[in-house]
Simulated assay, not measured.
Amino acid sequence: MEVIPYGRQNISQEDIESVISVLKSDFLTQGPAVPSFEKSVSDYVGSKYAYAVNSATSGLHLACIALGVGPGDRVWTSPISFVASANCALYCGASVDFVDIDPITYNLSVDRLEEKLIAAEKNGLLPKVVIPVHLAGQSCDMERISLLGKRFGFRIIEDASHAIGGSYKATKVGSCLYSDITVFSFHPVKIITSGEGGMVTTNDDHISEHIYRMRSHGITRNPQEMTKPADGPWYYQQIELGYNYRMTDIQAALGFSQMTRLDEFVKRRHEIFQSYKRLLGDLDLKLPTLVDYAHSALHLYVIRVPNGGALKANRKELFERLRLHNVIVNVHYIPIYSQPYYTKFGYDSNQYPEAEAYYSEAISLPMYPDLTDSQLEYVRESLVKPIGHQTIF
Rank of each mutant, 00 (worst) to 15 (best):
E14H: 11
L254T: 10
T57Q: 10
G309S: 04
V291P: 06
S25Q: 08
N203C: 07
S194C: 02
E377K: 09
I131N: 00
Y44M: 13
K312R: 07
T391Y: 15
V3I: 14
K277M: 14
L262R: 05
Y293A: 07
G232M: 11
S42A: 09
R315C: 06
K169T: 12
V329T: 01
G68T: 03
Y359P: 01
R246I: 09
S374G: 05
S360Q: 12
D370M: 14
E209D: 15
V291W: 06
Q138A: 02
L23E: 15
D73Y: 02
S40R: 04
G308N: 05
I192R: 02
L125R: 15
Y178C: 08
V53S: 00
D100G: 13
L290V: 06
V291Y: 05
S167V: 09
N10E: 15
H206Y: 15
S95Y: 07
L147A: 10
L322A: 08
N350P: 04
P103M: 13
G31V: 06
Y359K: 07
I207Q: 00
Y236L: 07
H162Y: 13
N326M: 11
E361K: 11
G70N: 04
K277T: 14
F256R: 12
N123Q: 15
G7V: 07
I219N: 03
L322W: 06
R269T: 11
Y293N: 08
F256P: 03
T29R: 10
V129C: 08
Q237V: 01
S179V: 03
A86F: 05
Y347Q: 06
K190V: 09
E361D: 13
R269I: 10
N54A: 08
T220H: 00
D180T: 06
D263S: 10
G195F: 06
F186L: 13
K150C: 03
M214E: 15
F152D: 00
V329G: 00
Y168D: 02
K116W: 04
D204R: 06
V302G: 09
P366R: 06
Y245R: 01
P306C: 04
I192C: 04
V75R: 02
I20A: 13
T248R: 03
A136E: 08
I207K: 01
Q30V: 13
A294S: 14
I392M: 15
L126N: 02
T77I: 02
Y243S: 14
Y51K: 10
G137Y: 00
V34S: 13
K48R: 12
I336M: 02
G388D: 11
V329F: 00
H389E: 15
N222S: 10
C88V: 09
G59K: 00
A230S: 12
D43T: 08
R221M: 11
V34T: 15
L280I: 08
L365C: 04
F152K: 01
G198M: 00
L241W: 12
Q375T: 03
H270T: 07
L135S: 07
G255E: 09
S78D: 05
C176E: 04
D284I: 08
E14S: 09
F319N: 14
L262A: 03
V305H: 02
A120V: 12
G309F: 07
